[in-house]
Design a protein around this nucleic acid. Structure first.
Lengths: 259, 259
DNA sequence: TGATGCGTTGCGCAATGTGCAACGGTCATT
DNA sequence: AATGACCGTTGCACATTGCGCAACGCATCA
């Protein structure tokens, strides 16, 4: 909607691919060098872009700080965290918390496995949306129309032989998940990794977040992991209760009303 | 330099404090609602801003993804990481990696302590620049003029009685650190936490990053922590060797030439 | 010493972003 | 149920703001 801002912001994903010099930025934006320079300067002043010693531009430090503050302001995360830790203490595996936002599912919290073999994932990283157990739960709760539209737009990469191959299969899987109230990913993303997941609901009953327990085959078999399902669901329900128990304000949970 | 972009970017730190509605954003920017709306829309299209169910705006998901890609493009981090893990395995304490950028020092990697009592810190979070051991190393290596200018601009909050109180004391400390090639923070940030840190140098001999080991008093005394200094320095030197040994390209370290 | 390639600057033009005023929806109040 | 206040949204006319051009300074390389 705003040309200047639009151009400026387009620089960021461009630089995310790697450092670039003024000329490259100008070319890829399709604008004159002087224009690119002005935009980069403004981004620089705000710390979103950094000029390294060879004069090339890179994404800047403030970006981290912003992402950091953003994640800390998510109140589901704050409420869920102690529960996730407790669950991790009980079962020892990696625990994830994820939310849906604008056609993406992303991890917003993680408690690392206590086993030496860990899975790779990172807070803030978009999730493999067509296969991850948490993604299934979050998408299954979308309004029908939106769900269909999204399923059509997605790519269905075959990470493994068990990956979900296409939109119809995905919608079918979502229907099942929606029905049963929990989800799994059995080697659909990485051959040797399985997950069980359960939904966290807000006061309105909608799925606000989802959590999962993941473990590689070498540690526990899929069947063994599934025995954890009741525990995972109980944890998710406990979080739901905490989360829906209070207004979206920031007061301490123990206080109620007055006012 | 560019008014529109400047205004748009000013919205981000504002939203980092917490969600805000259109009116609030417009007020704090000092612009008309319609202007704020247009800016927010543009930010929204780029995923930097998210509109939550109560219509208020929050920082968006793409921000995480960007910060994520940014941190992964830092090659010091990539090279240093295995060394940090090894050091953590040897001593068990929290290990940090930090860089200096635009008047800030920030953590770009961290390996958690294996002791139950952990210190609070977060990747991406700016460091307490006047007291942290890694900050001292990074600032000590700045050109004289820049170092003075920065020291004058800084605030010197008295986190504890041992915090560095003012610019002259800070510059003196930096001189010592520069001289000896390592740094400590003994309860200058949090009363009960001590750190030892060592510099990582690039091919040009300049300090490119700094790493530290931190531990609370309840786990080891300051004296005990100081006995780790040789180990920390050896690790930092090993990273320096890895880091300066090759061109800023992205090839695997073991391969050499061909081409 | 000339030549090429880069980032940078000043400038005149008009495209772009601006604030205004009016609309339409939602919610609380009576 | 009706009224009013509030907030987000839209279209528009004005001029501020950002635009591309061309010229400059400064490196590196021939």
């Amino acid at each position: 909607m705003s040309q200047t801002v639009d151009r400026a912001l387009s620089i960021l994903p461009l630089l995310a691919e790697g450092p670039a010099d003024l000329g490259q930025v100008a070319d890829r934006l399709g604008v004159h060098k002087s224009t690119a320079l002005r935009l980069l300067r403004t981004l620089h002043e705000h710390g979103l872009v950094y000029r390294q010693s060879d004069q090339r531009y890179r994404l800047g430090a403030r970006l981290f700080a912003l992402a950091q503050e953003a994640v800390e302001n998510l109140d589901v995360r704050e409420i869920a965290h102690p529960h996730l830790v407790r669950l991790n203490e009980q079962c020892g595996h990696t625990v994830h918390l994820a939310v849906y936002e604008e056609n993406e599912v992303l991890y917003i919290d993680k408690v690392e496995s206590r086993y030496p073999v860990r899975m790779y994932s990172r807070i803030g990283k978009p999730v493999a949306i067509t296969v991850a157990a948490v993604a299934k739960l979050l998408l299954a709760d979308l309004p029908e129309a939106e769900r269909r539209a999204l399923a059509d737009k997605l790519d269905y990469p075959m990470y493994t032989a068990r990956s979900i191959p296409n939109a119809p299969a995905f919608l079918k899987e979502l229907a099942t998940v929606r029905e049963q109230g929990w989800a799994t990913d059995l080697g659909g993303h990485e051959e040797s990794i399985n997950c069980v997941a359960a939904p966290i609901r807000g006061a309105d009953g909608r799925v606000a977040a989802a959590m999962s327990v993941s473990a590689p085959n070498v540690v526990v078999t899929a069947d063994e992991l599934l025995t954890l399902l009741p525990l995972v669901r109980r944890t998710a329900d406990a979080i739901s209760r905490d989360y829906s128990g209070r207004t979206p304000a920031k007061e301490a949970p123990q206080e109620m009303s007055t006012e």
